[in-house]
Write a protein that binds this DNA or RNA. Sequence first.
DNA 1: AGTTAATTGTGTATTTTATACACTTTTTAC
DNA 2: GTAAAAAGTGTATAAAATACACAATTAACT
Lengths: 229, 229
Amino acid sequence: MSHVLKEIIKNLSVDCAIFGFEKSFLEILLIKRKRNPEKGRWALPGGFIKKEELVDQAAKRVLEETTGITNLYLEDVAFFDAPERFPLWRVFTFGYFALVSPENYPVHIGIDTTDVKWFKLNELPDLPFDHKYIIDTALEKLRNRVRYRPIGFELLPAKFTLPQLQHLYESILDKKLDKRNFRKKLMAMNLLQKLEEKETNNIKRAAYLYRFDKKNYNKLKKQGLIFEL
Amino acid sequence: MSHVLKEIIKNLSVDCAIFGFEKSFLEILLIKRKRNPEKGRWALPGGFIKKEELVDQAAKRVLEETTGITNLYLEDVAFFDAPERFPLWRVFTFGYFALVSPENYPVHIGIDTTDVKWFKLNELPDLPFDHKYIIDTALEKLRNRVRYRPIGFELLPAKFTLPQLQHLYESILDKKLDKRNFRKKLMAMNLLQKLEEKETNNIKRAAYLYRFDKKNYNKLKKQGLIFEL
DNA sequence: AGTTAATTGTGTATTTTATACACTTTTTAC
DNA sequence: GTAAAAAGTGTATAAAATACACAATTAACT
């Protein structure tokens, strides 16, 4: 690797808001900072952009370096430019987000990091910089998305129940949905396969498991009817 | 003005795609560059961000300095980060856009500029850097907007005809609309006032003039049903 | 074993919104 | 005065979103 490739751009960074859907709850991935400023605090995975790097690439690299997550499609959310957002000098940051099934993306502790953990969205610790604001902005984007795209289907756990899925949508949209209408719309998309199995370890009545129907999804995608998250 | 306020950030700029709607056509405002690189060519109004400045402010300032347009609400489109987009060194740029009625925003030749002119979108000159791509991206954003917001109502000329307005929508969406359905939807919004006057200087049958009903617009806006462009 | 409580699962009727579609009126140019 | 171009106008149909209630399953409790 050449010297140039290692050089960073000191006034540009990326921060990643990785949302996870686990057991009906919407979560977010945070890292514990190894260095100052804000050493020891939980924060979004982030880092500086390098001299010859595209911002998208920087986001992927930074996420991998800090959390071990690789091969994830990250989407641009917005830029954050408040002059005092970083205390030492002025840093503009690009916010990125993704929605994943945590079981598909095992994490490990990376560089500049002393811990990595999923937090339920309503149990967030106090975050440094403008990271809470970045998360809120990313959530806002997720909410807009979910209205007109079958979001997150590729990112679900292999098997899931409809109540879980509805719970995910309700978490994202922050409102109750009608069970029958939700299912009707889902079924109309023709993207789910009902399995014979039911969930285990449940209290009360067990729900049927479904899996995502990749074949149909790819067919629709070819026709341009569905877009990648 | 302090020294710091004048200092620029050499690797960050803004470029403004200002769309105008004049006599049924969608146009864009370009400036002729006074300096190298690309001296003498038509390009988007743009310039570097200053050390203590928000990006939104930079966009407003740059637009005013180069074209004389003041007091215009500009909206962020996207960032552009291709390493070779600026030939001399690496510059990230933030694209901004607005949709205006040119008659409400008279232009004059500003700094670093030898000319300012509105160009019809289908009669664009060859543009330097990635400016054509920035315009296409801004148009894409405009197209998405127009679907679920009564775009541009505040920005129309004081008096306009429905065929003109329909033409605007058709230009943005790049497709024909049904006259009756278009009017039905418009009228349902309750945002237009029909005037007694008709347009002049016309060939064939003259169309009635309408004006934008600000009172109703503000009422709806207070209820959160309408958002600023 | 029977009862209670929690959760899953299922269909229809109504309202709202979007779409398709054709002729008359006005005005200018010839 | 007639031909040509554009403005103006309403209804019927299809599609999509919404509102709504009860029976089935299972675990926990007595």
